[in-house]
Write a protein that binds this DNA or RNA. Structure first.
Length: 477
RNA sequence: GGGGCCGUGGGGUAGCUUGGUCUAGCCUCCCAGCUUGGGGUGCUGGUGACCCGAGUUCAAAUCUCGGCGGCCCCA
């Protein structure tokens, strides 16, 4: 149980196999970088989104929905932004047989569609702050190799929040709130992460600075799973987002935006999986408990009857329960549901009937437990909580072990090349040295850890000057 | 950005070098029936494929070119 050989050594293969075998995603859609969500996968996606929506609503965000198309003139207003995105934009150039007078961009992100509307909505300080979000699909013309859920030409699950504030401090505080929300989000999913401030050359196009969350895939590569940007007044000035202050003066607003994509679902799948397939955290598992009857010949009736009763009891108690009464051998069903990541399985056979118990099997460890029928509800709840906790701890343990201090360039290179996780090394803070580190190690600089209180020990491995800070470097997806 | 490899039933593959014997083999999945039932039950039967287009040829899964799609390596 919990064997993780293929999961780790052959991760790429494991991942694409599991998307198919667990009915998550159909990867054969005949357009590069576009994929189909299957029922089981979509339920998982929607559960994950449910957590996100709850956290955002709790913190005063409101959901909106903007159009998919952005006119060229609006899209091209902010120079930095265009420079970052123009190479990846899909353009709609025709309507039927007519060539459009103004080309329309399929949004690669929505700043340029949302902020022009902000300029109509924001009149006075009383209109601020604005905290909106939407969950949409976006298109990016990726030239690199695409990968389901990870590198897409159509990101189908793009949660983007956009805020506007009266002053810089408030915007700064909003950035910190967003970081806090995302931490809670990933914590609820048991997905480990490190938060870092991206270096200037990897900052979101048009932002003052960017903060990013990264997790680790089983193959030792990092996966960026969330970003938070402080936009300052860049967009406000371009789109004319001004408000009237109490004294009657007009000021530009300060803005932030932050986003999460289906990469987070990829993260849930990868960090909790094993060689038998998925292992989903109970709070997002489409099926939390599967009941498998074991109908020995001539003893089918009581077994089936009790299995049904157990399933109904759990459903009534609010668990997502499923009874598998297919005419298959039990072992076959066990593998089937394990592959799909159902966290808890209850077996009911003649022996359980006789003893007024059910046999519970925990997906993460494979442990079997006899549960008295009478205690069913409370025990199931306990076991699901236990699985959630265990998954989180197991994932975090591996993550922590994979974040290593690297005293010099050689050590960093070793970690990056072997894809052994994330290296932490000293840095002088100069861009030229940073890029040289990336060049020489073949890794990507994630940036300076946000919570990293550790002293910047040692010297910059490139220029040998005293280090101003320490940064994380890894092979990134 | 540069280089290489690949595309055969739903999945994995054999066949391609040397065009014909391919009416395309095998494993798995799937469907039907019986059997079985606490970790992939067994038997019998069945459905299902040469990525698309053009070319060479008497003849193309096989050779050539283009498109689409996938994978890998380097930067």
């Amino acid at each position: 149980m919990a064997k993780r050989e293929r999961w780790q050594k052959n991760f790429s293969e494991w991942f694409s196999d599991i998307l198919r075998d667990a009915d998550i995603m159909e990867t054969r859609y005949p357009v590069k970088g576009l994929f189909v969500w299957l029922p089981h996968g979509l339920k998982l996606r929607n559960s994950v989104l449910g957590i996100m929506r709850r956290l955002l609503e709790e913190s005063g965000h409101q959901e909106v929905l903007f159009p998919q198309l952005i006119p060229e003139n609006l899209f091209k207003k902010e120079a930095e932004h265009i420079r970052g995105f123009e190479g990846q934009v899909y353009w709609v150039t025709h309507g039927g047989h007519d060539k459009l007078d103004v080309k329309l961009a399929l949004r690669p992100t929505s700043e340029t569609s949302i902020y022009p509307m902000f300029s109509l909505w924001i009149r006075s300080h009383a209109d601020l702050p604005i905290k909106l979000y939407q969950v949409v699909n976006i298109f990016r013309y990726e030239t690199k190799m695409t990968k389901p859920m990870i590198r897409l030409r159509e990101v189908t699950t793009f949660k983007e929040a956009h805020t506007a504030h009266a002053d810089a401090d408030e915007a700064e505080a909003q950035v910190m709130e967003a970081v806090k929300i995302y931490k809670r989000f990933f914590d609820e999913l048991g997905v480990p992460y490190v938060v870092s401030k991206r270096p200037p050359w990897d900052t979101f196009a048009g932002a003052r600075y960017s903060i990013a969350f990264d997790t680790l895939a089983p193959d030792g590569r990092t996966l960026q799973i969330g970003t938070v940007h402080n936009l300052g007044q860049n967009f406000a000035k371009v789109y004319g987002l001004k408000y009237e202050a109490a004294g009657g003066k007009h000021h530009y607003v300060y803005q932030t935006c932050y986003g999460i994509s289906e990469r987070v679902i990829a993260a849930v799948i990868m960090v909790h999986g094993d060689d038998n397939g998925l292992c989903l955290p109970p709070n997002v598992a489409p099926i939390q408990v599967v009941v498998v009857p074991i109908p020995y010949k001539a003893k089918e009736a009581p077994v089936e009857q009790i299995a049904t009763a157990v399933k109904n009891e759990l459903a009534t108690a609010g668990f997502r329960a499923h009874l598998d009464d297919r005419n298959l051998r039990p072992g076959n069903k066990f593998y089937y549901w394990e592959r799909r990541g159902v966290p808890l399985r209850l077996e009911i056979g003649p022996e359980d009937v006789a003893k007024e118990q059910v046999t519970a099997v925990l997906r993460d460890t494979g442990e079997k437990r006899a549960i008295p029928r009478k205690a069913l509800g409370t025990k199931v709840k306990q076991m699901l909580d236990e699985i959630a906790e265990n998954l989180r701890e197991r994932a975090w343990k591996l993550f922590r072990e994979s974040l290593k201090d690297a005293p010099d360039l050689g050590a960093t290179k070793g970690i990056v090349k072997k894809r052994g996780g994330i290296a932490r090394l000293p840095w002088c803070g100069q861009e030229s040295c940073g890029k040289e580190i990336e060049e020489q190690t073949g890794g990507d600089m994630l940036g300076e850890e946000l919570d990293g209180a550790q002293a910047p020990a040692g010297t910059c491995p490139i220029c040998s000057k005293r280090a101003k800070t320490s940064v994380l470097v890894a092979k990134a997806y």
